[in-house]
Design a protein around this nucleic acid. Structure first.
Lengths: 204, 204
DNA sequence: GATTAAGTTGACCGATGGTCCACTTAATAT
DNA sequence: ATATTAAGTGGACCATCGGTCAACTTAATC
């Protein structure tokens, strides 16, 4: 019952170091190469570990990409939950939505091929039912946020469907490559245009 | 200079037969299985031909999917160019756009995994610059139509971007699976909602 | 029936995501 | 310090994929 009686065994020090090395290596490779060229083996080599280690840590290519994405999304998630308006609570739904989508676009722009890589990983053979069914938790949380805001502003429309449509944009190749080039303002502007039009049309 | 002096050598009879067999087999497999499980080899086996024949006919997996997609799109393309309103010329841009997107949704619903398969094929390693740059001609033509209609109704917005956003919807996994389940009306309704809101917001 | 270009095929290639297990090593208990 | 041991590691190995190719067939022509 001493101070070392932790039930949850911590991750070993070398394991934690390797986890970081792998994540950083994947990040770096993804910044410079299209996702289909960033194989697990290359990531492992760049991180200075064996391929098996990557799979041991992240389970699958999808798992690695998911973790990378989660890392990027955490900051945004917090800003949404408890940050200042218009992103955080307090502002009107329209403004919150516009602000959120702008940030998502920016996040897409800063992360190069990450979104595409995750999509690509999901589309790959092995991970059948389990991996793909519940999709990725970040998408789910984003979708909940967006569809919640839409529902508050326009209770009469199919908010969930429209939220899927808006977020789907990020996974589109023509737009993704635009984001990769840094042009996130263009997407943000069109997001704003669509959202404002939608809210105005019903609000009177 | 007799009656057989055709310069354009026709496709041989057995080749034409195999082409059809391959297309139909791919169609059938795609109706029942997720795209990543429909390998070229399986298509070939189902069509009763060798793998090499598929590549000889269609060049690549992408080429096969593209052809399948083109086959499905031809009918729609013609209806748009010279059919009766609201799909064809004559109706207001809003109505044409709503009608067009409804048909696109329906097309997606009837074709199971075709869109996803094409996307999946595009994301696959080999076909680097050439295959991917100009994207697929069907998408380009759809995009031109949609962005043209938007520009006519709302000259002040970024029509090309918004057209990408609307069409991008079809490539989204949550919505694609909805379409696969036959629920194309739901997508069509949200398309209509968004488009009407967009046009109303600017038209006064 | 001969000629020939078009078509066909399956063994083969390099690469990928993922598995496995013999081997190391960090954290603990003594 | 040393022993114990569970966690971690690495890379040969596997099935499968898209794609290539050279030897072989065959449909269309004269």
């Amino acid at each position: 019952m001493g101070k070392n009686c932790r039930m949850e065994r911590r991750e070993r020090a070398d394991a934690a170091r390797n986890r970081q090395a792998i994540l950083r290596a994947a990040e770096e490779l993804l910044r410079r190469h299209p996702p289909e060229q960033v194989s697990v083996e290359r990531v492992a080599a760049a991180a200075g570990v064996g391929k098996g280690t990557v799979f041991h840590r992240f389970g699958s290519r999808t798992g690695l990409m998911r973790e990378l994405m989660a890392e990027r999304a955490r900051e945004l998630e917090q800003a949404v939950a408890e940050g200042p308006p218009p992103l955080g609570p307090g502002a009107e739904p329209v403004e919150r939505l516009v602000a959120f989508l702008a940030r998502v676009a920016e996040l897409g722009a800063r992360n190069g091929n990450l979104m595409a890589a995750h999509e690509h990983a999901m589309a790959t053979r092995k991970g059948a039912a389990e991996e793909r069914r519940e999709s990725n938790p970040i998408y789910v949380s984003w979708h909940r946020h967006v569809s919640g805001l839409i529902a508050r502003g326009r209770p009469d429309v199919d908010a969930e469907e429209i939220a899927h449509m808006l977020l789907g944009t990020l996974h589109m190749e023509p737009i993704a490559s635009q984001l990769r080039a840094g042009e996130h303002e263009r997407l943000a502007a069109s997001f704003a245009e669509l959202v404002r039009a939608l809210f105005r049309a019903g609000g009177g």
